[in-house]
Amino acid sequence: MTTNKDVLLERIANKSAVIGIVGLGYVGLPLMLRFAEVGYKVLGFDIDQSKVDALTAGKSYIEHISADSIATART
């Protein structure tokens, strides 16, 4: 019998799991970019509309994170 845990572990292993990150600040945004970099689909959530708008436009609001990193993660 296949359990929910088995299904989740399989989705993580084959990178078909969708990762959700709540808060896209100095911890959440780099975490989101790393998951995207290794091949996961990632959904980010933040209550700060200006952050959401910047990311949607392919821009970074954190100095050490480039717009190129954002653009790469969006593809």
Rank of each mutant, 00 (worst) to 15 (best):
I21T: 11
A67H: 11
I12G: 06
V22H: 10
G23L: 05
I19V: 15
T56F: 04
S50E: 14
V38C: 04
E37S: 15
G44R: 01
A13C: 13
I12S: 05
V38Q: 03
K59F: 00
S69M: 11
G23Y: 06
A73K: 02
M32T: 09
E37A: 15
G25H: 14
A73C: 06
A17K: 09
L24E: 00
I12Y: 03
A73H: 02
A57P: 00
S16L: 10
H64C: 05
I62R: 02
D53S: 13
A13W: 14
D68F: 05
D53P: 12
I47A: 14
I70M: 01
T56R: 15
K41V: 08
Y40F: 14
A57G: 08
D53M: 08
K51H: 07
L43D: 10
A73S: 07
V27H: 07
Y40L: 04
V18D: 06
K51N: 06
A13P: 12
A54Q: 09
F35E: 03
D68C: 05
I47C: 13
E37W: 05
D46F: 09
A54R: 07
V42N: 01
A54C: 13
L55G: 06
A71P: 00
Q49L: 10
I70R: 00
A57Q: 15
S16E: 14
S66I: 04
I70D: 01
V42A: 04
F35A: 08
H64T: 14
I62S: 04
I62A: 04
K51C: 05
E37V: 03
I65N: 03
F45A: 14
Y26I: 08
A67Q: 07
G25M: 14
L33D: 00
N14P: 10
V38P: 01
I19D: 04
K51T: 05
V38S: 05
D46N: 13
T56C: 08
L55C: 08
S16G: 09
G58N: 07
E63F: 08
G39N: 07
D46M: 11
L24Q: 01
V52W: 05
I47D: 09
G20K: 12
V18K: 15
M32W: 02
L29Y: 02
F45R: 13
D48Y: 03
